[in-house]
Design a binder for these strands. Structure first.
Lengths: 140, 140
DNA sequence: ATCGTCGGTTACATCATCATAACCATTGAA
DNA sequence: TTCAATGGTTATGATGATGTAACCGACGAT
């Protein structure tokens, strides 16, 4: 039976364990970009009813139309978001989380919950680290 | 009482909910980069004993010395990894997860577990999406 | 005398991400 | 007739992330 960690098979060798660099990283990379979590969060606000493009846009201040389009397209590509186009005038486009997208919410919340709880400590560590770096550069 | 989702406060307005774009995204962005999860996974293999730079490096094929250094430095900056330097010759440097880093493992595993379970479906969706895009461009 | 080990740093090129802004088609309203 | 609303696309730059390669210093082994 093979050991596994974070979805990655571990190979035991004489010189130590070796991780198989495997695909799940590309999912984390997608969700780790600048806007994806915000967009998913907006859609998670109304898991049962679709949401119009403009409503999502208004819910995320500072996101540009282009980046929202790209982000939604990526999520759609991964099958996490469904797009419904109604060729009215003016056109109406609605988005909603798919079943797969909704299945992500709980595990995601487990992780973002940890981030929320730990965030202030991480911020403090960053500040301290940067301060030491700055003073250390001249003091060394 | 304020609604919250994925660690982000939600403001209710007449035109719909608005998400406060808040800092936790920067943690996800850090973990979502190309190497961080792999490095954390390596260190999680031996949560109790530190690991040498070279051992981590050998455990992650294809990571360059530079990127491993940068990734470990980032994790150290966030207080997730501790660095121990022994000025011997040749020098010895050991890394280990801090308590904070270890506290991340369970929530992270919840999420990467979902990725592992869903990965094949996501891959399939991507392929299908890209195929439709390619044929659709000419067929439209 | 030269090489290899270890854990880096530095310089440079390349590539992806993101921001900004202009443009598009359609229709109804001012 | 000009304008706004909707949901985009396209062009252009800037910034950031990553890859590649060379170099470092101390020492032990060859």
């Amino acid at each position: 039976m093979q050991r596994e960690i974070n979805g990655r098979p571990v190979i035991e060798t004489a010189r130590g364990p070796v991780l198989t660099p495997c695909a799940p990283g590309s999912v984390l990379a997608r969700l780790g970009d600048k806007w994806t979590i915000l967009v998913v969060s907006m859609l998670a606000l109304s898991p049962d009813t679709p949401m119009r493009f403009g409503a999502i846009r208004r819910g995320i201040p500072d996101i540009s139309q282009r980046m929202l389009t790209l982000t939604l397209r990526s999520l759609e590509r991964d099958g996490l978001v469904a797009r419904h186009y109604y060729p009215e005038v003016p056109p109406r486009v609605e988005y909603e989380l798919t079943a797969r997208g909704r299945s992500m919410l709980d595990p995601l919340a487990a992780f973002t919950g940890w981030i929320r709880d730990t965030w202030q400590d991480i911020e403090a560590s960053r500040k301290e680290f940067d301060d030491v770096e700055r003073s250390g550069t001249s003091a060394n």
